[in-house]
Simulated scan of single mutants.
Amino acid sequence: MNNQKIIKDQFIDLKVENLPISYYIIRKSLLSAVSELKPIIKGKVLDLACGLMPYKEYLMNDSVEEYIGVDLEPTEYHNLEKPDFYWDGQKIPFEAETFDFVIATEFLEHYFDTSSILKEIQRVLKPGGTFFFTVPNVWPLHEVPYDYHRFTPYALSEHFKIANFSKSDIKFLGGRNYHLALSLAIWYDNYWSESRKKVIKPFFNYIVNTLVKKDKKQNFANNQMFSGLYGFATK
């Protein structure tokens, strides 16, 4: 199996039997968010902190002139896919107003100074350019110790204003049912023995998938729960 097939199976052609249930659920919501980007992406694209660049082939179309992945010095991700450029985690290695789109999936929670990195992203975007992002809310600590934030939509909105984006549109990756389904799946994947999992797996998968199917992404309000956020910010 070639590397691109492995990446596609893990992020695009999702099957519950091929992934831990928590990964299946979160990646299902991420793919749904990226699907909103697919019809509008164009020009020169930067995938920041790109990892495996899991959505590159999915997003490519005749309107995309160039797709560039930038990441930190080699990590385990790069055994399957190497970025086009490395960066120092501070300054994006391109001139101002270079890109039409910058995408960063599940990245902002790992950057302590949010306003600083958003200003740097804003710098390399062309006027009117778009930043697409996703961030988790329900997810265990990961890539420790570099896991710094779980954002509310209001915090992100203020960060975009500080970074001089002209507007932002922030949405739920999943609502309260998705929040519960993902919480249960994380608990199941990480804290249950394999023998106990086998006993309840069919019933558990039914409950979790029913929650996901009946999820509703309601408006931001008091007492609302959500699994994560995604959206678009315009320079």
Rank of each mutant, 00 (worst) to 15 (best):
N209Q: 13
G129E: 05
V138T: 13
E106F: 04
A104R: 04
L184W: 07
N177D: 13
Q218K: 13
N209S: 12
I26K: 03
A181C: 10
T105W: 07
F99Y: 04
I207R: 09
K126D: 03
L229A: 06
E194S: 09
S35A: 14
Y188V: 02
S168G: 10
T130P: 05
F232E: 00
D62S: 15
S29A: 08
E76F: 13
F151H: 03
K28V: 02
I6C: 11
I41Y: 03
Y188Q: 04
K38V: 07
L19V: 05
S157W: 08
P74K: 15
E109A: 04
I186W: 07
Y86A: 02
G43C: 10
F226E: 03
S29P: 00
V45Y: 00
L182H: 10
T105H: 05
A233V: 09
I117H: 02
L184I: 06
L31R: 01
P39A: 15
C50Q: 02
L108I: 07
K44H: 04
F220W: 07
P136E: 11
D9F: 08
L211S: 08
T75M: 12
N61I: 10
F172S: 06
Y111F: 14
P93F: 12
S116F: 15
Q10I: 03
A33E: 00
K213E: 15
L46P: 05
E36M: 07
H110C: 01
E81N: 14
D84K: 11
R123I: 03
I40Q: 06
S32C: 08
G89L: 05
D62A: 15
E65F: 06
L48Q: 03
L180Y: 12
K201P: 05
A96S: 15
N219H: 07
F172C: 11
L156A: 02
G129R: 00
Q10N: 14
K38C: 09
K42C: 09
H110Y: 08
F94T: 02
W139H: 09
L180T: 13
G89D: 06
D215V: 12
A96C: 07
D84L: 06
G175F: 02
D9V: 13
I207E: 10
P20V: 02
A181Y: 01
H159C: 14
S193E: 11
M225R: 14
P74C: 04
W87Q: 06
T234A: 00
V144Y: 11
T75I: 05
G129W: 01
L14F: 09
L125W: 04
L72K: 15
F85K: 14
T98P: 06
D215Y: 07
S183D: 13
K119H: 13
Q4E: 15
L19P: 04
L59N: 00
A96T: 06
V64H: 11
D100H: 10
F131T: 00
H78Q: 13
K214S: 14
V144F: 11
K15A: 14
G175K: 06
G69N: 08
L125I: 11
N223Q: 14
L52S: 01
A104G: 14
Y67Q: 08
L37H: 01
K171C: 03
K44C: 04
N177E: 13
